[in-house]
Design a protein around this nucleic acid. Structure first.
Lengths: 148, 148
DNA sequence: TTAGATGCAAATAGTTTGCATTTGT
DNA sequence: ACAAATGCAAACTATTTGCATCTAA
């Protein structure tokens, strides 16, 4: 699969310093960065790149399906994940609120079936499971045992 | 499956006017409302309920897995979907940016396998496909043919 | 009765915009 | 060369907070 930079170039966009810095930050972290995280990383690695360009780039990358915004618990700002092969899977621990990446993907067959049934053309997908991670298996769920 | 109100009650929370209004708005719309949509609906149906309570309720419902925030294109505010049976599936058309609900769910087997492999305990999931809907099958993708 | 929940308004945080200037191709 | 992209700072929108008051159980 081609890198984010290659995909930008192929789509006809200029490879500017701001765009390279944003992609580099995301790739370095493997995704799951908030806009603020990206902003901080970019400001450190490429001082002079402005806030607005970072947001414009995140928006562009999202429109091109190179990244996707997702939510953890913080509703105020999303977390961006890379979509290297058009898909991404993670779980969110409802106790400790960590993201845990899931590698396996068994959705190709389902995607083909949906295309056939609904008459649409799919490009990719994001799957988000939620539950308790290994560390929190025995913790009570929010709402159980913690009714404020 | 129990309703949102029942789930709130079971978890030990009070059934206040604000909470009932928020849940009612979401259930009436079948989900996919932004916080602003919910705010508007609630203000109309139950004047006197304040902004803060609406946000506090959306947050509570999210923590209890009664709803989940998701993204369309607008990165500035999420869209809340109901999780009536612990799961939700939709596609986003990358051309017209509509949400299209998907009923079928073939993820139970995958969930059980992840639990076995990773040693976690899953409660539910959200699946988001993206691609072109029936109306937009032949439209060029963002980035193709539209390099700004 | 009383802890939990609320409404308000002010504070904070996140994102976008307009425009003159710079830069990748 | 020149359209596309940028940086800046100001505007704007969304969300949270503190606290006195209210209310569901």
């Amino acid at each position: 699969m081609s890198s984010g930079l290659e995909r930008l170039k192929t789509a006809g966009y200029k490879l500017t310093k701001a765009r390279q810095a944003v992609l580099h930050a995301l790739e370095l972290a493997g995704g799951h960065l908030t806009s603020t995280d990206v902003l901080d990383q970019v400001t450190e690695a490429a001082p002079g790149v402005g806030r607005a360009s970072v947001f414009r780039t995140l928006d562009l990358l999202t429109r091109l399906n190179i990244i996707r915004p997702t939510y953890g618990l913080n509703t105020i700002t999303p977390t961006y994940v890379l979509m290297p092969d058009g898909h991404h899977h993670h779980m969110i621990c409802v106790v400790c609120n960590r993201f845990i990446e899931i590698e396996e993907c068994g959705l190709e067959a389902m995607a083909r079936q949906i295309e056939a049934t609904m008459g649409v053309k799919l490009l990719g997908h994001v799957v988000e499971f939620y539950g308790r991670c290994t560390r929190c298996l025995d913790a009570p769920l929010p709402g159980d045992e913690t009714p404020p």
